[in-house]
Design a protein around this nucleic acid. Structure first.
Lengths: 297, 297
DNA sequence: AATGTTTGATTGAATTTTCCTATCGGTGAT
DNA sequence: ATCACCGATAGGAAAATTCAATCAAACATT
């Protein structure tokens, strides 16, 4: 039963029988039969199929809700008992929004000092993807904005507040100012994240208020790309203060506070709402709670 | 996996491999093998066995905690989908403390009017047994004291407050009074519940304060026994006002308020803390919430 | 101390379930 | 019209589950 529910979760992730089967380590007929068996024991159609996967039925969505919880709890049970035997081991899968990627190190490093046998998988994702992945049990924890999208069934631990800086070089336009305003920023050619990123949407909103049209000279879904471009001294970007500091400022590379509407957004750790938490998640939350005060501005 | 966890729950209830197997509808070797397989996949001993069942290991208790939740959720899933298909059907298993048994009818009757296809199983249990049965998924809901024992992981809906009355007949000692005090009650030969019942322990406490020794003339774990004795006109008892009224007073059979310390205890519905609740449980809770105001004194 | 009973583990065979390979039928795209 | 893709189906091999029968140990009774 549990493996069948696992099949269903994989299908929800992949929306494709073949690929879902692959991620489950079984063949496609096996997964098909598993779903079919679920449908038979429950007595309802769960998946609308044409010649391919179309969608879940309302009942399917309902079963998915339970499956997320049940499969999650079974994994938690395994992890829990494992922790009793061998201390904290295993792998923590964490997804973070691009602007938070650099700060993950300040969470993982002290964690590793405390629990040396835990391995990490760190993924860059959009804020929406983070929440979806959390739902689908693809990741154990996420780092994302806490105050924009509705978060769903998660626990959130605030970590820091994002304040925006114009990242540019001395000698460039605005490069020698001590503060700038959003209307001024709107006049500069910028390197920005792609529009599927919430950070970009936030910046869009701020720039739009100035009435100016936004014409980013360069878009990427990777902060490394943006930063390395700015570093050449020929480009400018907007990024959170914490991130700019972490990546490293130089004498010519400056992060200039953007004042006018000094909008801030809280970024924090989100973990599945589960009582009790898995040992790994609990340890990560504890670490985040230790870290948060040191990040306050 | 889920059936194995079910085996473990049955073992926790019965503390006996053979009987646990029977309640699961399998033979004893099957259940033994199931437990053993659980132990192997988790890599820990779950049960301390001598030549017979001794106890659960600490890890076993931990697994039990998860098993309760997981098995409960799987059942909730089944029930949930079933309700989507056929409306509310199935069986609600409710256990109540003896003094509350009579009022269950005022919960089940309007419930049945709304949901005619739901069957009931009603059990008389001590307050401790109610909570245990709730933990072990033997029952779907309980009716018990809310303000004495620690309740554990349950949701509670207060129903009414128990006030105590001396149930006796005109002509008997104290039989013609309008109120009596606990010290006076202590002087009368009484029919009381057995000491494993919390109601009895509450009454014991109240009587003890008077300094008098308690020598109940008759003990039973059934309120019907107590009531039918009092009804002969030759005995007396102490019971909650609601119960006495429900069972029916006559001209000679009187329920006399006991004043001195007018202690009250809240009785309510307790259901497993599960989000979302099973459809049956949710409907029962809704009914309880409708009923509660009408019971207020 | 001897005996009988109770209890859970073990064994071996029959059954059921699960899973894979190979293939089919249908749909949508080129 | 053809091709590529997707999910369902069929059949057979492997694995698992289950049960009846039996065993060994511990406990209770005499």
């Amino acid at each position: 039963m549990i493996d069948k529910l696992d099949f269903l979760l994989a299908l929800a992730r992949e929306r494709h029988f073949g690929r879902a089967a692959e991620t489950c380590g079984v063949t496609q007929p096996t997964l098909s039969a598993g779903i079919k068996q679920l449908e038979e024991t429950l007595g309802v159609l769960l998946v609308n199929r044409g010649s391919r996967f179309r969608s879940f039925t309302p009942e399917g969505e309902r079963v998915l809700d339970w499956a997320r919880r049940i499969v999650g709890d079974v994994r938690a049970l395994r992890e829990d008992i494992n922790a009793l035997r061998h201390g904290l081991t295993g792998r923590l899968r964490i997804a973070a929004i691009p602007t938070a990627l650099a700060m993950v190190a300040s969470l993982t490093t002290p964690f590793r000092a405390r629990h040396p046998n835990v391995q990490f998988t760190l993924l860059s994702r959009t804020s929406i993807e983070v929440l979806n992945a959390l739902d689908n049990l693809e990741i154990d924890a996420g780092i994302t904005y806490l105050d924009n999208e509705p978060l769903g069934r998660v626990n959130a631990i605030p970590l820091y507040r994002e304040r925006y800086r114009l990242l540019t070089s001395t000698g460039s336009p605005l490069g020698d100012r001590t503060t700038v305003t959003w209307p001024e920023v709107a006049q500069v050619p910028l390197c920005l994240l792609t529009p599927d990123m919430q950070n970009r949407r936030i910046i869009n909103r701020l720039l739009n208020r100035t009435g100016a049209e936004i014409r980013p000279m360069l878009e990427s879904n990777s902060m490394i790309v943006l930063f390395s471009h700015v570093r050449t001294g020929k480009w400018a970007s907007v990024m959170p203060a914490k991130l700019a500091e972490t990546l490293g400022l130089t004498q010519t590379l400056r992060a200039i506070p953007i004042v006018d509407p000094d909008e801030v957004h809280t970024v924090g750790l989100v973990v599945p709402q589960r009582e009790p938490m898995t040992p790994l998640t609990a340890a990560l939350v504890a670490e985040a709670q230790r870290l948060a005060p040191t990040l306050a501005d």
